[in-house]
Design a protein around this nucleic acid. Structure first.
Length: 211
DNA sequence: AAGCGGATCGTCT
DNA sequence: GACGATCCGCTTG
């Protein structure tokens, strides 16, 4: 009991918030290095957290599949702002998906977070997902699922600064480093289908789809 | 195990 | 007025 408490305290102590400079780079580089980091959502004082195990890179220039391909609009404006902010969009009439803006201000690259390995707050995640009992792989394996599990919506989270210590949505580093990363084509798009800009932690069972 | 279609609505043409 | 960076349940094999 005491040991568990000390381990938890030590782990929290080791947690660091990723700085804005981390995100002010190419989406490919940010995507790869986001694997293994921890996405944290604080909802009504509770900490819902999961390790990022699957991501996709989208580019501000020369990427027909990106939401920013046709230029800046009210919907995608966050992508053209400073790096390290949440771009949350609503899709198919019922799902939310969350991205992190990358590259310097004015360039619209981003990384779509596609799957988490749940770490804390699993009971609440299951309730938010409408699942009982909680099957861990059903909680946050998929971009729509993870937003539902962490209560992320466009109305509440779009534009949040993920590098702000006071933010209710953060990305933290707990020291975990993936042993091997696999690159595959991106999922669910119809343009630029071939380019391998989807990255997963090799062998992780919480990815949304087998490689 | 894999494939199909319905649900559902904000955004841009 | 069409479509989409999805999910789920149902069907078939």
């Amino acid at each position: 009991m005491l040991t568990a408490f000390l381990l938890t305290a030590f782990k929290l102590f080791l947690m660091t918030l990723l700085p804005r400079s981390f995100f002010s780079r190419s989406p490919d580089a940010v995507a790869r290095e986001l694997l293994g980091k921890v996405l944290v959502s604080c909802i009504r004082g509770q900490r819902l957290a999961g390790r990022i195990v699957e991501v996709e890179a989208y580019f501000g220039k020369d990427d027909p599949a990106a939401h920013s391909a046709a230029g800046k609009t009210a919907r995608n404006a966050v992508l053209f702002g400073p790096p390290g902010h949440a771009y949350v969009y609503f899709i198919y009439g019922m799902h939310s998906c969350v991205n992190v803006s990358c590259e310097p201000e004015g360039q619209a690259g981003c990384v779509l977070i596609r799957a988490l390995e749940p770490l804390s707050g699993l009971d609440t995640m299951a309730r938010l997902r409408g699942l009982s009992p909680a099957k861990p792989k059903m909680l946050a394996s998929g971009p729509g699922r993870l937003c539902q599990a962490l209560a992320i919506t466009r109305a509440t989270h779009n534009g949040l600064d993920l590098t702000d210590p006071a933010s209710d949505l953060q990305i933290q580093d707990d020291g975990f480093r993936p042993e091997k990363i696999t690159a595959t084509p991106r999922i669910g798009i119809r343009k630029a289908v071939e380019n391998p800009h989807r990255f997963v932690i090799h062998g992780n069972t919480f990815v949304s789809k087998a490689p």
